[in-house]
Design a protein around this nucleic acid. Sequence first.
DNA 1: GTTGACTCTGTAGTGGCTCCAGGGGCCATG
DNA 2: CATGGCCCCTGGAGCCACTACAGAGTCAAC
Lengths: 141, 141
Amino acid sequence: MTLQPFNIGGLSRQTGVNIETIRYYEKIGMLPPPARSQGGFRQYEDHHIQRLRFIRRGRDLGFSIDSIRALLTLAERPDSPCEGADQMVLLHLDEVERKIADLTLLRDELRKMKNCCGQVVAQCQIIGSLTAPGSAQQDAI
Amino acid sequence: MTLQPFNIGGLSRQTGVNIETIRYYEKIGMLPPPARSQGGFRQYEDHHIQRLRFIRRGRDLGFSIDSIRALLTLAERPDSPCEGADQMVLLHLDEVERKIADLTLLRDELRKMKNCCGQVVAQCQIIGSLTAPGSAQQDAI
DNA sequence: GTTGACTCTGTAGTGGCTCCAGGGGCCATG
DNA sequence: CATGGCCCCTGGAGCCACTACAGAGTCAAC
Ligand SMILES: [Zn+2]
Ligand SMILES: [Zn+2]
Ligand SMILES: [Zn+2]
Ligand SMILES: [Zn+2]
């Protein structure tokens, strides 16, 4: 536990979050504005580390800033029910699973395309499958 | 083959590409500027359809605009070798495979998290795992 | 000649940062 | 006291690939 407040560089080092990103989080209201030194430097304390790590962890799990905002609000009310958080995880899991499915289809298409070895463009499978209809992915409208 | 030129709406309908997107592609030099009617309406011809479909297929396969630009340049020179295209497909395939791997890890994390059913925030596994990564212990934020 | 669908330009917004210019603060050394 | 070097400040622009307006003009049918 640090007793002395520290500058933005210290917070950056302790969390691995870019300085510019920290200022950005403050600007959009994700991090509470810290006290300032006489010269105008931001002075952070330990609770800022906790909050920033929470945000970071959420981002690493792919949650949007808005979702993390909601999770933070929830986390600040320990006595409230946590259905909201459950919902958000389930929704996000769905989203991730859909994204994996989409990318897997894409990967298969690309694997089919990659069997062109050193021809001329006129006979190239890759250029051909982009030019001719039906070879690439189906219309997803 | 259409003999008469058509407006941007027609091009949009024939390709499934948003009108605003078509204008955007022209602005960034992906689509050649078409002729104009007396009133200033864009007048497209069949080769615009071909080119726009090429772009669309490339985007559906996840290629960046710049990659597609390069592929288009290549496609316009039927006699040149196609190694460049091969390279791009391989690179992109790598990228997609890495993305799938990342998302799969994410998915597994989220699946581990989702087993919290109707507790209070103070005991919530989800909030806990965001607060203290690696363990289910909770701390004030 | 009036309606109504279509199109035009230009600008701004999205998410989540990241980078930069041009200045000020802070501490140690000479 | 001055200087150097590092840290920090603000405000704004840039990234990607679109998307969404506002406000004006065009065109064909009736
Ligand atoms: Zn999500
Ligand atoms: Zn080839
Ligand atoms: Zn790629
Ligand atoms: Zn819970």
